[in-house]
């Protein structure tokens, strides 16, 4: 069984761009809208790419800015300069 990972993001301007970028970069990801937030689920692994979010926001987006938009997540986290990955080992 491939274990699902997930991340919940606030419904804000930055948040919408992050969700869009995740859905574009992770073909298996699905999004579930809830009041004020969106939960994105993906089997096994999910990547948030800084360049992909930056492109949508029209400005440089630092992956650490995720701290301003994230609500919750399920999975382990690996963070570097260009991306943030949520995965199960």
């Amino acid at each position: 069984m491939i274990k699902p990972v997930s991340i919940s993001i606030q419904n804000t301007q930055d948040g919408f761009a992050i969700v869009e970028a995740i859905l574009a970069d992770n073909p298996e990801a699905t999004s579930n809208p809830l009041p004020a937030m969106t939960k994105v689920d993906c089997p096994g692994r999910l990547v948030i790419r800084a360049d992909s979010v930056s492109e949508r926001l029209g400005r440089e987006w630092d992956p650490q800015e995720i701290h301003l938009s994230v609500i919750s997540l399920s999975g382990s986290v690996d963070e570097d300069d260009g991306s943030l990955i949520i995965f199960w080992r």
């Binding site: 809830l34 701290h67 609500i71």
Partner: peptide, 24 residues
């Protein structure tokens, strides 16, 4: 927090999500 949002409680949603971003 989602319930607060749905029930028009903007203040609670905002502190809730502000806290929840640390919670992750």
């Amino acid at each position: 927090m989602s319930g607060a949002a749905y029930n028009g409680d903007m203040a609670t949603v905002t502190f809730g999500f502000s806290a929840q971003s640390d919670e992750s």
